[in-house]
Write a protein that binds this DNA or RNA. Sequence first.
DNA 1: TTTTTCGTGTTGTCATACAAATTTCTTTAT
DNA 2: ATAAAGAAATTTGTATGACAACACGAAAAA
Lengths: 240, 240
Amino acid sequence: MDEIFKKIGTTQTLSQKIERNIERAIREKKLPIGSKLPSERELCEMFAVSRTALREALRRLSARGLIEIKKGSGMVVTKIDMKDAIDSLNLYYDLKFDVNLISQIIELRLAFEPEIAKMAAQNRTDEDLKNLEANLVEFAKCDPDNTQLESDIDNKFHLCVARATGNPFVIVTMEPVHNLLPRMRNFIYANIEGEKEITLGYHKEIVNAIREQDAERAYEKMQAHLDRNMQVYNKFLKNT
Amino acid sequence: MDEIFKKIGTTQTLSQKIERNIERAIREKKLPIGSKLPSERELCEMFAVSRTALREALRRLSARGLIEIKKGSGMVVTKIDMKDAIDSLNLYYDLKFDVNLISQIIELRLAFEPEIAKMAAQNRTDEDLKNLEANLVEFAKCDPDNTQLESDIDNKFHLCVARATGNPFVIVTMEPVHNLLPRMRNFIYANIEGEKEITLGYHKEIVNAIREQDAERAYEKMQAHLDRNMQVYNKFLKNT
DNA sequence: TTTTTCGTGTTGTCATACAAATTTCTTTAT
DNA sequence: ATAAAGAAATTTGTATGACAACACGAAAAA
């Protein structure tokens, strides 16, 4: 009896079936990355469906970043990019964003970023170090009245640290979180006098630790830095 | 001069323009979550485009999880679900998976999961605790010869801990990582004699700490647990 | 009032045609 | 023979019209 009701919602449309079919072929590497898909006409014949249904399946696959469609040329299986994954996370976090989540974002940063600093100290390349040092210079000469730019550079610093871990999972995790920070800017960087110098001081110490590949010190400094941030945030919260 | 070449690839198709248009309306909450979109016919008139182009835009939006299309009924802006974000991460990690990434997955778990255990101890609800305890029972009475089931329950344990943090960012981060673990199973759980009892012991201690909301002990036990895992993994690596 | 039936609107699929971009081949000029 | 120019074929993008499959509500029947 219940089985009848279960079927509701499970009715796949034809184009969805086609989509799964092609997706499976890609996942199983039967269609290797970079390979050209058969043309629409050929696929229509193979699946014995109309061009409409096929195309709607293809549109979905391209929206999800599995294939790339070039007008007049053809379709290829794309090397799925980290950017695709980050984009969809951005979308999700963006739509979900809510002031109530701010404390959870801070909680996550407080928990993860010291560990990330540690990993960065262990795995950083010379190029990572160069990026971090460039960020310090940028931050130092940034107009202190331009709070927008200031917090952008600050965010970039933390992203650079995440990238210096060399661990793609860390990057995918933290990029969307940091993309959310500008929306918290008005809450946190509320024109606190002299805060910039303090922040810069912490950043310098973190970079020093990463330069010398001193994992424990990188951990501690990042923790101290974010603790300070937390305090500033709490001070603001009291004012509201 | 170069500007001419830059334009290559930026040529948006009509359906892409429509897609961005509707996406923007959703992001700006002009189309609130749960609201019904105008019918295809109406949208065609509004945008002054053919049904073909419009529908392809809609297919893309639904593939990305922004809208839900119900045959015969209509289209609604979906309350974007965590599942959508996790799904796309799963796809990315799945296609990217490579034995070389195993060490980075372990690295991430070693860095993050102790902190996660700490957060879980601080934030867990009674229901979280019940789930964790149920998992312990399940694990205990699991047939030790069924290594597949055994590692599934193990993974589930760590997911329960992540969920007990109550922090959605933590869950989104860890779910796809743990979905990858079954593919590492053969590498790690290579029929190590007596390993199950040791694992169960750690799990119990972690749950105890979470029950008593002892954050530091939860941290330490999780760290010890994963350190042990790491050793088992390294032992295997030597054998290859 | 309750149930059934039917009509209307909505999305799904099909077929055909042409536009626009790209590739391939042919022709032509050097 | 080689290279450039152009024509032809191929491929994706859009438009149009038609019908099928499904959902929902209103009207009709019990």
